[in-house]
Design a binder for these strands. Sequence first.
RNA 1: GCUGCCGUAGCUCAGUGGUAGAGCACUCCCUUGGUAAGGGAGAGGUCGUAGGUUCGAUACCCACCGGCAGCACCA
Length: 636
Amino acid sequence: MTLPDGSRREFPHPVTGAELAAAIGPGLAKAAIAVRVDGKPRDLATVVDRDAAVAVITRDTPEGLEILRHDAAHVMAEAVKELYPGTQVTFGPATETGFYYDFARDEAFTPADLERIEARMREIVLRDEKITREVWKRDAAIAFFRDIGESYKAEYIGEIPEGEEISLYRQGGFVDLCTGPHLPSTGCLGQAFKLMNVAGAYWRGDSRNAQLQRIYGTAWANQKQLDQYLFQLEEAERRDHRRLGRELDLFHMGEEAVGSVFWHPKGWTLFRIIENYIRMRLDAAGYREVKGPLLLDRSLWEASGHWDNFRENMFLAESRDERMLALKPMNCPGHVLIFRNRLRSYRELPLRLAEFGSCHRNEPSGALHGIMRVRGFTQDDAHIFCTEDQVTSESVAICQLLVSVYRDFGFDDVEVKFADRPPQRVGTDAVWDRAEHDLKAAVELTGLPYTYNPGEGAFYGPKLEFNLRDALGRQWQCGTLQLDFNMPWRLGATYVGEDGERHTPVMLHRAILGSIERFIAILIEHYAGRFPLWLAPVQLAVATITSEAAAYAEEVARECTAAGLRCILDTSPEKIGYKVREHSIAKVPLMWVVGRREATNRSVALRRLGGNEQEVLALGEAVARLKGEAAIPCSA
RNA sequence: GCUGCCGUAGCUCAGUGGUAGAGCACUCCCUUGGUAAGGGAGAGGUCGUAGGUUCGAUACCCACCGGCAGCACCA
């Protein structure tokens, strides 16, 4: 046997994975839950009877954890079958944080049922049932599952490709179709799991199929990891932008405009700061800002292809002369119309048209989520009209712009994905070949690492997706760069080339933040509402200790406002402790406390959010320092 | 859109088949206090909306609207 460290062990006879682990050491034997033989995960009971590369999988590795979670799903299924006979089992895989199992049962599982199921699962773990693997013939397996009333399983076995082994796992009275591997016994699962919730899920992920009941659980190698995960969930709840949006008085949502945002003064301040920052970056990068109409004629959407692809999601309106209009769901057709409004020369290319585009999409009600997923939103959109020769340099510039903007907002961890042609698309394969080739060449030039996301491109072209990782380690797709050889042609955009002939330009669609509404939600959760100074809607609170300092405090606040700082003045007759608490809860980053002493020396006592030290500064110095700290970053 | 759960004051929540309560927030008064809640008083609700059952519904039933979780969707 060759071990992962390259060392070799000789055995005169075939050994099981468990025996191999024991031979290496008792500690490993205890932690072992499976083995990998020539790269393939196998049960510990697997007999290795030839030379092979063998690795022992322990419960605290990602691979081991996945096996553990998969077992948790089986144990849950066993518990459900015991408690609710007649329930059918379907699929039950491991997930990133745990597992789920989809069940078919007429009655709904209640929260009380979940408690019963979880309690039964713990019993099954204590029973420490042996888990054994059996290989069955296809027909026998189908007949077996049909006989025990598991029609979903029987249906699925029929679709397993010829030549693939059909393995069943048995634990106690429960038998499930599964490729494995699994733990040696249910006792190895341990008790670090918890059932989370029930929800509907479609059989095989298709909304035309029957809806099943999916029970989600989380499972970990030990109790400490489980506690840590549950704490993370609580932290995510504390940071939830819907809660902080209300607590910080940034925005609200209401029944009067479902799926749209009512921005309050502080939230809109944040919005404008972001918009202005992007504007500054775009000006520097050679973009021209435009503004297109919100309502556009149906014929345009038919020509662009959106009507066929997204009609269901467009808001429609009718003008008094009975023309059908659609509230724009995106900005590209408008930009093409601006482009082709007059004859264009190759000398104008690349032409970079940017817009803070107000878009409306009639999203399904179940998709709405705070200001992350809304029906009315603002894209920081742009379309670059260029020649095919310019695609690479423009794409590289876009990638660099995106990454530097993300850095300014505090996101240093960016992952790029390359999404190629989707099943439903416009344009010929030859055009797609070229587009995919050019876009790939560009991303490779930037040196940014990227992974593939097959079949997820836009219907008119391949795209790069930019994913940001936030403070809780979650990924958010924000930026996108789409290469489009189709839309300009469909909408009749042309330019006059050097040769005096008409040519169709290539179009690059790109957004940096995506939806500004959604990006603000991400920022709120990333920073837990404690924004860096340049983004904070209120940067400074000037608070008095006594009304004797009120006149001086007014002067201080006036000076800050005049210096372009966002400052509030608090001369209310409360004690300073109360004011500190109020502004701390409002997450105002800085406080200047002024009392009799400060009024006399013309100074301020600086207090930072979350800190408890104070620093006394002369007024002029304090203003200068604050201006410096509040400067808008620019990595470019 | 689908499945399940939920909807009582601005917020967080209690409560009952006989038309409602707490804390915080809010308003007013007193307090001028040196770094996360000083004291007092007051105001505030067609119990999501509309039907039904009932002598009587906020409570029970149905529908609709909205929210939450997941699924499906996401140009």
